[in-house]
Nucleic acid binder design. Structure first.
Lengths: 210, 210
DNA sequence: TGATTATTGAGAAAAATTTCGTAATTTTAA
DNA sequence: TTAAAATTACGAAATTTTTCTCAATAATCA
């Protein structure tokens, strides 16, 4: 299939969220213009994004909220639950364990790993913390498909290398470092400093402008 | 000044980080090709990004790491410290208070807000939690410039509206909802579900491909 | 029923971003 | 000292992404 851009995929996620909210409110039909307005984009963008995958609307009427949500769920692979491992049970890691949004979207944290012997064996939210060295067994047992990396930058690459060896193909990385992986493995980044620096740039520009 | 793309700005952040690491390692000179290799991009991209702001390298030689870091710091506005407020002292919020990376980059959390009377008055990391209703006073006293929004989606828009009234012009939003703000205010998003859903899409595609 | 309004879908056009090609410059080696 | 190798800077070309235009179709109103 033709390569779809990352931006399109991430907008599909926001449409999915928008549709969930509309469905909760009892809305049954929605236009591309309404979806666009809620997300501060253009309706042409919404229609173009959807057009890569098919024709889901009715001319003159718009989209059925439930249908469209189902279609997007199918596209994004959200119809199944995903088994997730969390590596690094520090401040960030601990916060993510209780992050309700993940579970709501079907991402279930099934395993915790750390390299700190003090933490190994402890239990958080019903999950035992395993040592990272025994990751492969747990990953196979729990059928882990996605790993969230919340370890210090220094060790992030080697942790990922290890998990790639165990067969993990998808990573969400919170460590501030670019990770190298084989072509058939994907890493997505969650880098809070980068966003803050973009704000810093914006504020600096504005000061200059005045 | 010509509008610089968001991607360029966020790549500048990664170059900045790369340079910090190289400087720590004692490296004094670096080529665009090396910076590119570290970040999985092309050297042409690195040079083009820098070219929007000036000519910082020496032909045949490359860039002086300290010089280039200084230049990028100046561009991004990282030469000063930024005063940050954190709104919403839940799981995510609490993790961010101790997030060392922020302080390292000069983003100093100076005020905490919440609307839960149980939390108001408590102290975390030497900072007292204020009620969100008294935000404007604290924001003026502490000269807050950036607010991190870590409240539930339902209340995120109204919290931001309030802070915009107090004069805050930059927001980092963790709530899974698109926020409306005036033109002179910027919101950046940190949306962990969106990245996970991109991974879900990727894994789903791969399964189909096999 | 017929006209009007709303809205999608899809190709075309425009805009933005990335990559390419190459002259200029610097360092290193012969 | 001269040739070769390395590397930037920058305009041009290529590619990608977004926006525009408009025919097709559905619903509503007179």
């Amino acid at each position: 299939m033709k390569k779809i851009s990352d931006s399109t995929i991430s907008r599909l996620s926001t449409y999915y969220r928008t549709l969930s909210n509309l469905i909760d409110q009892g809305v049954e039909t929605v236009s591309s213009e309404q979806i666009a307005e809620i997300n501060n984009i253009t309706s042409a963008q919404v229609r173009k994004d959807l057009s890569f995958f098919g024709s889901f609307g009715k001319r003159g009427l718009g989209y059925n909220t439930k249908d469209l949500q189902d279609q997007i769920a199918k596209i994004l692979g959200l119809q199944k639950k995903w088994n997730v491992a969390l590596v690094g049970v520090g401040n960030i890691g601990r916060a993510l364990i209780d992050y309700a949004e993940f579970k709501k979207q079907g991402f279930i944290i099934k395993a915790l790993f750390d390299n700190d012997m003090q933490k190994v064996g402890q239990e958080i939210g019903g999950l035992k913390i395993h040592h990272i060295d025994s990751a492969c067994n747990v990953i196979k047992e729990q059928k882990i498909e996605i790993a969230i990396i919340a370890v210090p930058a220094k060790v992030a690459q080697s942790v990922v290398d290890n998990l790639v060896q165990c067969g993990v193909k998808a990573f969400l990385n919170f460590a501030p470092i670019t990770i190298k992986v084989p072509d058939d493995v994907m890493v997505k980044y969650e880098n809070m400093s980068i966003e803050l620096e973009a704000l810093s740039y914006f504020l600096t520009q504005n000061e200059k402008g005045d």
